[in-house]
């Protein structure tokens, strides 16, 4: 009975040591991969609202039978939304970097 208790203790110690080792050996993603991931993310976040604005503008122009008024207005709003998205994404990335330090 005593033997089995010491075995359990040994096993618990080994598990604790393994967990500690695993924590320390946590692989860090390469900075270059992270840089590209963030760069692509920022670019897509900037372009998406512009594209959505142009699409909605095109549909509204078609609906109201106007020329490119809605497309132009919504493209400008899309540009502003894109800049806002870039600012928010950059803030999020900065927060992530600060959190991982």
């Amino acid at each position: 009975m005593r033997e089995s208790t010491s075995d359990t203790e040994k096993m618990a110690q080994r598990i604790a040591a393994f967990k500690h080792k695993q924590k320390q050996a946590k692989p860090k993603r390469s900075d270059i991969a992270k840089f590209w991931e963030n760069a692509v993310r920022v670019a897509v976040e900037f372009v998406s609202p512009v594209f959505i604005g142009i699409c909605i503008g095109y549909l509204l122009d078609k609906w109201f039978d106007t020329r490119i008024i809605f497309m132009l207005i919504l493209a400008i709003f899309g540009l502003a939304a894109g800049m806002l998205n870039v600012y928010r994404t950059a803030k999020q990335i900065e927060k992530d970097i600060d959190g991982s330090k």
């Binding site: 976040e45 998406s48 609202p49 594209f51 959505i52 604005g53 909605i56 919504l74 709003f77 899309g78 502003a80 939304a81 894109g82 806002l84 998205n85």
Partner: peptide, 8 residues
Amino acid sequence: VETLSLLA
């Protein structure tokens, strides 16, 4: 602007 940001 915020609506377009959400839809994007």
